[in-house]
Nucleic acid binder design. Structure first.
Length: 677
DNA sequence: GAAATAGAACAT
DNA sequence: TGTTCTATTTCA
């Protein structure tokens, strides 16, 4: 017998192995096996089987699973993702079933006949040790032994029920603010779980949105809500894993990893704020969890609901094309609460503008909490030597260096390597250096000086966990009012602080649902125009609306550089923003009307790079997607040479199949749906 | 992804 | 002709 094994390596083909007699009866598709590969031992997934034999093939070394850990539905979803993201199947399957998942730690044996009764209630791991794995395979195969998990007490089964055809599969966009969304979600959840069905809900993150939603949903549906994928908590993760298979009337919450989680008896998928960056997997295959969820709802024939104030353009396009239903409770910003101030050189350190101090000072005087948005998290993100007229660049990769004051380090924006800052230009030793592009750390420093009576909280991706843990949730979701540092007497419970909190932060501010903010200041929001490539308008709209969604300010004040002619007015009307932006994308042939793939090659020698580029071009002609290629662009990055090709292709073409063939040439990186173009 | 191998540049 | 470094191929 021959098995075809998908390995978690960047090679698109599968590898075939012979199965020794002893395992022929037991081995099944979608089990994990260990195989010899280049003098090493690798774990892989059986994705196909043949009855023939071939003496030239090597034998598999072992069978890891006693039963398949995924079924045809999950396999076909993974195959789809493999094509859609032009990634080898083994690399995708790793997200569905981790290669190092040791399921036997959570299973206990149950005897099904007399002569196995001594194994009853023995942990599977111990049974493996005492009886041997081959014996266990045989006992299970002959229905003499079964296994049940320690969390639900029910037998493990790898087969989900057939999708209920009575269920109506439809896609819905719920366009509305956080309170309306939450109410809608709770209503939907209760409709589904009351019939004993399960609901899968994807959330943008664990620490902020995750905990906020967990608290509210589990408050309403006690003991029925589970989080999947809590970092560092393997046991809790596995509890959710088994509950999702065997439980009834449960809500399974999760972020990226939950996109592939088998939830049996699942009858609804909810995706909250699908536009958030966190749905995109940053390492390995860069899949988008909400896209996987969308495909999954189609194949499982269950409804899916996307809720947000600013859904991704792909989703809104679905509405325009009649593929999505829409429930429109869209948020509008009152124009009378808005003020726009334009200043010269806003992003260069120095004295903060008088109007800025006034606006903040007024709110402080009224004891109102303030949120100040800035597009950058560190002190400044650009340093420029006035002697040699050069911007500070990373010596490893050539990226732009920024400055982080608290660590006194220069940090590369591209590769995030850091070096100690010496207060002089590394090139010419001059100490006449101009800082520009100020960020959250800079504003924090200046405002701490000016408003010493206030508590200043910096809210970035890195600090969000701490901010939320300390204040937002343990205070039973009360508005943000603790101000502990200024409490004069710890024992005085009746103390009501008067001094407001000033939150300074990046996009992460839009996760502070429980912060009681009256004034929102956007300091340099218009700079996203330059930072965000073709998605600039979309990003600006999303950030603005999501800040308003979470913080619910009464007043909004924009401080903008006078050179950047951006009118916030254009972003206030969701009724026209989406059709306009979609029209622009359609005319310019950009996503969501086409797919983009970035193909990257990095070599020491420019000649070698060029040679590989030629090969890619030749292969793309042969595979039939040559006409969609633009490039290649060469860039010197430190001492290395980087080549880039952009592939812009129609969504319906099977270009990905051809892209998978590129894995035959090694040393190239394919990035699907790049966001930095 | 990483070991094996082919290739290039340099020293003996 | 050996040594060492780098690019390329191949793995079942």
């Amino acid at each position: 017998m021959i098995v075809h094994v998908a390995l978690a390596i960047p090679v698109s083909k599968t590898f075939s192995y012979a199965v020794p007699r002893q395992w022929e009866l037991f081995i099944k598709p979608y089990m994990r096996v260990t195989v010899p590969f280049h003098n090493r031992v690798l774990k892989g997934y059986v994705v196909g089987m043949d009855n023939g034999s071939d003496d030239s093939l090597k034998d598999i070394l072992g069978v890891i699973d006693i039963f398949p850990l995924f079924n045809e539905a999950l396999a076909s979803l993974s195959r789809w993702a493999s094509h859609y993201y032009a990634a080898p199947l083994g690399l995708i399957l790793k997200y569905a079933v981790p290669l190092n998942l040791q399921i036997e730690q959570y299973l206990v044996a149950r005897s099904l006949c007399d002569h196995t009764s001594s194994l009853n209630d023995i942990p599977l791991k111990k049974v493996f040790r005492t009886a041997g794995k081959d014996a266990v395979l045989s006992l299970y195969h002959n229905r003499e032994l079964d296994f049940y998990d320690v969390f639900t007490g029910k037998p493990f089964t790898s087969l989900a029920q057939e999708p209920r055809q009575s269920q109506k599969h439809d896609k819905t966009l719920y366009l509305g603010g956080i309170d309306d969304r939450m109410e809608h979600y709770l209503m939907l959840i209760s409709q589904h779980i009351v019939h004993g069905r399960n609901v899968l809900m994807l959330l943008p993150d664990y620490h902020a949105s995750g905990k906020y939603f967990y608290k509210i949903i589990s408050g309403k549906f006690k003991d029925s809500v589970y989080w999947y994928g809590s970092p560092g908590k393997a046991r809790a993760r596995m509890e959710t894993y088994f509950k999702a298979r065997n439980g009834e009337g449960l809500v399974i919450l999760g972020n990226k990893s939950a996109a592939f989680l088998p939830v049996f008896n699942n009858s609804l998928i909810i995706v909250e704020r699908s536009e958030e960056d966190e749905y995109r997997n940053e390492e390995g295959v860069q899949f988008n969890a909400w896209m996987i969820a969308l495909k999954r709802a189609e194949t499982e024939h269950i409804p899916i609901v996307f809720g947000s104030v600013t859904p991704p353009l792909e989703v809104y396009k679905g509405v325009e094309e009649g593929k999505f239903n829409i429930i429109d409770k869209s948020l509008s910003i009152k124009r009378e609460g808005i003020r726009v101030v334009r200043k010269r050189n806003l992003s260069i350190p120095g004295k903060l503008p008088g109007e800025f101090m006034e606006v903040v000072g007024d709110a402080v005087a009224k004891h109102e909490n303030i949120a100040i948005f800035t597009p950058r998290k560190d002190y400044v993100s650009q340093l420029y030597c006035l002697d040699c007229k050069k911007t500070f660049l990373c010596s490893f990769c050539g990226g732009v260096l920024g400055y982080q004051k608290r660590s006194n380090a220069l940090i590369c924006s591209a590769c995030s390597r850091s070096v100690n800052y010496e207060d002089k230009c590394p090139r010419c030793n001059s100490s006449i250096i101009r800082f520009s592009q100020t960020g959250a750390e800079y504003l924090e420093e200046k405002l701490k000086d000016a408003f010493a009576q206030c508590r200043i909280v910096k809210v970035t991706g890195e600090t969000l966990e701490e901010v939320v843990k300390g204040e937002l949730l343990d205070e039973s979701l009360k508005p943000f009012k603790p101000l502990k540092p200024f409490k004069p007497d710890e024992s005085d419970e009746s103390f009501r602080p008067l001094n407001p909190t000033i939150f300074i932060g990046t996009q992460a501010l839009s996760k502070l649902y429980a912060a009681d903010v009256k004034l929102l200041v956007l300091f340099g929001w218009e700079e996203l125009m330059r930072i965000s490539g073709y998605r600039a308008f979309e990003r600006m709209y999303q950030i603005l609306m999501n800040l308003v969604d979470a913080l619910r300010p009464e007043h909004i004040c924009f401080f903008m550089d006078e050179k950047m002619a951006v009118e916030p007015d254009c972003f206030m009307d969701s009724g026209s923003f989406y059709p306009d932006e979609l029209n622009k994308r359609r005319l310019a042939e950009y996503p969501p009307y086409v797919r983009l793939f970035l193909i990257e090659v990095e070599k020491n020698d420019p000649e070698t790079g060029q040679r590989l580029m030629k090969k890619i071009q030749a292969l793309s002609e042969k595979e039939g997607f040559g006409q969609y290629i633009t490039g290649s662009l060469m860039q010197k990055r430190g001492h290395r040479y980087q080549y880039k090709i952009i592939l812009k292709c129609p969504e319906n073409k099977s270009v990905s199949t051809g892209l998978l063939a590129l894995y035959n040439l090694s040393g190239i990186r394919i990035e699907p749906d790049p966001t930095t173009i």
